[in-house]
């Protein structure tokens, strides 16, 4: 996306382009299967028929980071897991977003000790934090929709 940024703001063309690209990015975001602990079970529930995340475009959960856009860090990240998490984040192609699902991913949660990274934003930059222990599937979907709203507001110059 280099040329558009160099040409700068071209008025209505830029806005329409921004809207079109942001719309397409939100509607088919593929999450990466990164369930770690209890929040992963609620993420699986959100994917299942009762709460159905696929109506928001997240039908496929790709286990491979190279084929996904969204990393939902669901669960507690231990100090042993942190470098693995960073490596997987680096393997994701741009544009990519991170949702920190649950209290442990947001801030360390119940576990304030030697073994847990106190908030996954020490390892990867986070876009949306979803609170809860574990957050209800509806809360996760609300978090995803918040992320969609955030992406809709992205400007051309911020695109990766």
């Amino acid at each position: 996306m280099g040329v558009e940024q160099k040409l700068g703001n071209m008025g209505v063309v830029t806005t329409t382009l921004e809207q079109a690209v942001n719309w397409s990015r939100t509607n088919a975001m593929w999450p990466m299967l990164f369930g770690l602990a209890c929040c992963a079970i609620e993420m699986m529930s959100a994917q299942s028929a009762a709460f159905d995340m696929s109506r928001f475009g997240m039908e496929l959960m790709r286990p491979s980071p190279r084929q996904s856009d969204l990393m939902i860090v669901a669960g507690r990240v231990s100090r042993k897991m942190a470098p693995v998490l960073r490596r997987l984040y680096d393997q994701m192609p741009d544009p990519k977003w991170v949702v920190a699902m649950g209290d442990c991913a947001s801030c360390g949660g119940v576990f304030n000790n030697y073994a847990i990274v106190q908030g996954v934003d020490e390892v990867v930059p986070v876009d949306v934090y979803v609170a809860g222990c574990p957050p209800r599937p509806e809360a996760l979907i609300h978090g995803i929709l918040t992320l969609h709203a955030k992406i809709q507001g992205e400007k051309l110059r911020d695109w990766a």
């Binding site: 000790n113 030697y114 073994a115």
Partner: peptide
């Protein structure tokens, strides 16, 4: 060795 009593909990200030 974490579970020894002289090993700190690793508490982060709230």
């Amino acid at each position: 060795h974490p579970l020894r009593k002289d090993y700190p909990l690793g508490y982060e200030e709230v």
